[in-house]
Write a protein that binds this DNA or RNA. Structure first.
Length: 721
DNA sequence: CTCTACGAATTTTTT
DNA sequence: ATTCGTAGAG
């Protein structure tokens, strides 16, 4: 293993970044410019060439996927185990710190991680305690508010009691929420980061220990860091100039959830000795695609400035299809996919990218009708399913009986006759006496505060959890899960549920047992977590894909956001319409509009060989027919990179025209009009038949005679007026 | 407790 | 249109 294998596979800019002397470094990595490669090789350089121990490396990512990939690639490159390196997500690493220093972080050893769903339930419960009207202040809003404050590093105690009614209300909820979490040993995602930050900030010895340990700190997707994440990084690196960040201001698409693109500027200010390296050579896309993407993103202001280039040729032009409506749009896309697959193309090389999830439906329907397998990304993940979360709640209660979120979740699941009234009483009692729900129940039973019936049911529940804990003591994880799933009555409960739904849920529970069996427990984990605790953390922090037909050769459907970091040979970006993309909510605000434009840039740069953009001239939206304008982003793409598949209708529609497929759409071509076809040359329109996607047009070609063509994908253009 | 009916909302999402 | 959540009745 020598220096050449680390340096040789790199281009000049990459090499510069990888081999720079240790100092603060900002790598501006354009899409497809090999940013992971730079990170991996940089770490390899520090170990192999600079002679630093893997132990001294910290690398932070946003997703588990990115962390796993980085770890694997380092191991492959260096042929060593990367175990002793701290490579993980912000949340995962924060969790690790908190487990190790639970006491210093003022957390119980048994603290559990709560996902957003748990968090929302907890907030809803607080509404009842505080007597708040859910209709007036949606719990979602309170959740958003709390997380927003935490992302900024602000605790309830930091906030002034003044402010308008809304502010005071939110503050009250925030306060109450913090109390419940503390009492029940629950930590939400934002709290992991905030707490980890406070832990280091308030414990100089701990901080200094980690500062010493981590000689090199690396951050992936730096443009996505929020305030508290950056503050945490700064604590760890302080003035030591050992922060190596990789990011792309043009790919910042998570501003709406607290990501601060400004952190790039702050970095430059905070680390005056920093060096900037730009990676602009792209290894993914064709020249046309890059040119178009470059031109689009140029419309944004205040960029760091980057221009992607490639040595591969221009490639095919980007095609643009103006569909009649969303049906036609889907039809066209699927038809092109069908052809491509027919010619031997691989389905998994194809992606359909859309702005909002609701758009997937049309495409799914057409894909099903054409028997093309597909996979929709996003949506419910395995560990997010209700039945799985219920089973996990039992497991969590066994580990921490005071976990109120889990307690509330399953105290009456399966139903055991504990109604809303009894629960309410318990909540009030818990709040008044500052007890966890479990403690409140025990108190109520001891004091005979409940009706005998509810009391019996509740003590039955507590006994059940206790007996589950006893029965599973010392058993292997999957046995524990198996026993819990069966003896909690969940299986029984879902078996009774009618239809396929219950059946699927039972299967999922069985799958959970299986997942537990396959779970690889790291016995020597430095935090000394039990197998169950590790598994529960895994479930909370790595909800995982776990989706069916992942192995199959499938067309990939996902939102533009979900596509970040991925690449596909052929990409369809659909719904290029004002109000959809850019989204309605963003058009008034220049900042948000720029984020939409970055989203467009991200989408376009996913494509390797072929990019196709579509929009619909009419679209059914919320049950109404709308006539959107083509997206401004389309106009920002240089014409020489484009090829219009169907010219936009020149004729303006009569006002009464509804755009319904069943009415006769005047379309682009009138009878008798002269048209030109790519292959067949010029001809005259004789007849038309059908409508929308099915519309056919009969043309008398000078060269080849009379032909019927499918209007939606015959490449026709008008001749003359 | 479960079922039905009505009303409201409806970008993007990882951890 | 569709979905989701709540309220009210059975």
């Amino acid at each position: 293993m020598d220096i050449t294998s680390i340096i040789n596979p790199l281009n000049d800019a990459q090499r510069e970044a990888v081999s720079a002397p240790s100092r603060a470094m900002l790598v501006l990595a354009g899409a497809g410019s090999g940013k992971t490669r730079v990170l991996v090789h940089r770490i390899a350089w520090q170990i192999q060439v600079e002679g630093h121990s893997p132990h001294s490396i910290l690398a932070v990512t946003f997703t588990n996927k990115a962390a796993t990939e980085m770890r694997t690639r380092i191991e492959d490159l260096l042929n060593i185990s990367a175990r002793s390196m701290w490579i993980g997500t912000f949340h995962g690493l924060a969790h690790r710190l908190l487990r190790r220093h639970a006491k210093d972080a003022q957390l119980p050893e048994t603290f559990q991680v709560m996902d957003s769903d748990d968090q929302l339930r907890l907030i809803k419960r607080l509404y009842k305690n505080l007597n708040l009207d859910e209709a007036k202040w949606p719990p979602k809003q309170a959740q958003w508010y709390i997380n927003g404050q935490k992302d900024e590093g602000i605790r309830a105690k930091h906030m002034p009691e003044t402010g308008d009614f809304f502010q005071r209300q939110m503050l009250a909820i925030y306060k109450a929420y913090e109390e419940v979490c503390q009492r029940s040993g629950l930590v939400d995602f934002a709290e992991l980061l905030l707490r980890a930050h406070e832990l280091l900030r308030d414990n100089p010895e701990t901080l200094s220990f980690y500062q010493q340990r981590f000689r090199h700190v690396h951050v992936d997707e730096f443009q996505d860091t929020n305030t508290i994440q950056y503050a945490w990084l700064r604590l760890l690196t302080q003035d030591r100039d050992n922060l190596f960040v990789v990011g792309d201001d043009d790919q910042s698409i998570y501003g709406w959830r607290g990501a601060k693109i400004e952190n790039i500027y702050r970095f430059q200010k905070h680390f005056p000795n920093h060096k900037v390296v730009k990676l602009e050579r792209n290894y993914r896309s064709t020249g046309h695609i890059l040119k178009a993407a470059n031109r689009v993103i140029e419309h944004n202001e205040g960029r760091m400035g980057k221009e992607l280039w490639t040595e591969s040729g221009d490639g095919e032009p980007i095609s643009v299809y103006a569909a009649f409506n969303e049906q036609d749009e889907a039809y066209y896309v699927v038809e092109r996919i069908r052809k491509w697959v027919h010619e031997g193309g691989s389905r998994s090389d194809i992606a359909i990218l859309y702005r909002s999830n609701a758009q997937s439906r049309q495409f799914e329907e057409k894909l099903i009708a054409t028997s093309i397998p597909y996979r929709v990304y996003g949506g419910l993940r395995f560990f997010d399913r209700a039945e799985i979360k219920n089973a996990l709640a039992y497991l969590r209660l066994m580990a921490n009986p005071d976990d109120d979120a889990s307690f509330e979740r399953v105290i009456n699941t399966p139903t055991r006759g504990i109604g809303a009234k009894s629960l309410d009483d318990i909540r009030v009692l818990a709040r008044d006496k500052n007890l966890s729900l479990r403690q409140a129940v025990e108190f109520a039973i001891a004091q005979k505060l409940t009706t005998p019936r509810a009391g019996n049911a509740m003590s039955g529940f507590i006994a059940l959890v206790r007996s589950l804990a006893e029965q599973t003591q010392g058993l292997p994880l999957f046995e524990q899960v198996k026993i819990v799933v069966e003896k909690s009555g969940l299986i029984e409960f879902y078996k009774k549920e009618k239809g396929d739904k219950g059946e699927a849920r039972v299967e999922n529970l069985e799958e959970l047992v299986n997942a537990a069996r396959l779970y690889e427990y790291d016995q020597d984990n430095e935090e000394n977590l039990s197998e169950l605790d590790m598994f529960l953390t895994h479930a909370a922090l790595e909800a995982g894909e776990m989706q069916s037909n992942a192995e199959q050769d499938c067309v990939q459907l996902m939102t533009l956001h979900a596509a970040k970091g991925l690449e596909f040979k052929r990409v369809f970006m659909v719904g290029f319409e004002e109000g959809l993309f850019p989204s309605q909510q963003s058009v008034e605000d220049p900042g948000r509009l720029e984020e939409e434009r970055r989203l467009c840039y991200v989408g376009m740069t996913r494509a390797m060989e072929n990019l196709c953009l579509t929009y619909a001239e009419s679209r059914r939206l919320w049950g109404r027919e709308t006539y959107p304008k083509a997206s401004r982003f389309l106009r920002e793409i240089p014409a020489e990179t484009l090829q219009e598949v169907r010219m936009r209708a020149q004729v303006s529609r009569p006002v009464s025209f509804t755009g319904n497929m069943d009415s006769h759409e005047p379309g682009t071509y009138k009878l008798g009009q002269r048209v030109r076809h790519e292959k067949f040359g010029e001809g005259v329109v004789l007849q038309r038949e059908g409508s929308g996607a099915q519309e056919r047009i009969q043309i008398n070609f000078q060269a080849v005679g009379i032909k019927w063509l499918m209007l939606s994908y015959a490449k026709l253009e008008g001749v003359g007026a």
